[in-house]
């Protein structure tokens, strides 16, 4: 096993032992949310703000991009994630962070229910949460 895999595992365990979907930051803590809305020209920005531990998420996201290089495009990822939430960018921007958070949480659970999962270094993650972290890695 090489060092990067070890580091990645450490990051992932740090991130995920905080609690699976609870890795999504509580909306109340996303203080930067409102001010960042203006940045919607950056693909997926409202989504990426939902994750509190950005450094760890970036490591997982990088692993996802290595496994699925064809998704290595921020715009594509953002559209894919929003599409899976039945949203487009305008609707996402209009949603309160709590609502977006809830939709994402539900989608992640649906992913697990429907076996839409991805295996990264042994971790079994929802496809949507993995894509979200990939988006962070690209941001």
């Amino acid at each position: 096993m090489n060092d990067s895999v070890i580091d990645r595992r450490k990051f992932i365990s740090n991130l995920l032992c905080l609690g699976g979907i609870a890795i999504l930051a509580s909306p109340q803590r996303s203080l930067a949310w409102a001010s960042e809305r203006a940045g919607l020209n950056r693909p997926g920005l409202p989504l990426t703000q939902l994750i509190r531990q950005q450094d760890s998420a970036r490591v997982i996201g990088q692993a996802y991009l290595e496994a699925v290089p064809e998704e290595g495009n921020a715009l594509l990822l953002s559209d894919t994630i929003l599409g899976s939430l039945s949203l487009d960018a305008d609707h996402a921007a209009a949603l309160a962070p709590e609502a977006l958070h809830q939709r994402l949480r539900e989608r992640v659970r649906e992913d697990f229910r429907d076996s839409r999962t991805v295996k990264l270094d042994g971790w079994i993650l929802s496809r949507t949460e993995a894509r979200l972290m990939a988006l962070i890695a690209l941001s």
């Binding site: 595992r9 365990s13 995920l16 076996s115 999962t117 042994g122 971790w123 079994i124």
Partner: peptide
Amino acid sequence: AAEIMAEEFGQNGLGRLQMNIS
């Protein structure tokens, strides 16, 4: 078995699983 457990844990909001076997 591990994959199914992981999906059940995830679906029920219990946490995430890292597999040690492939």
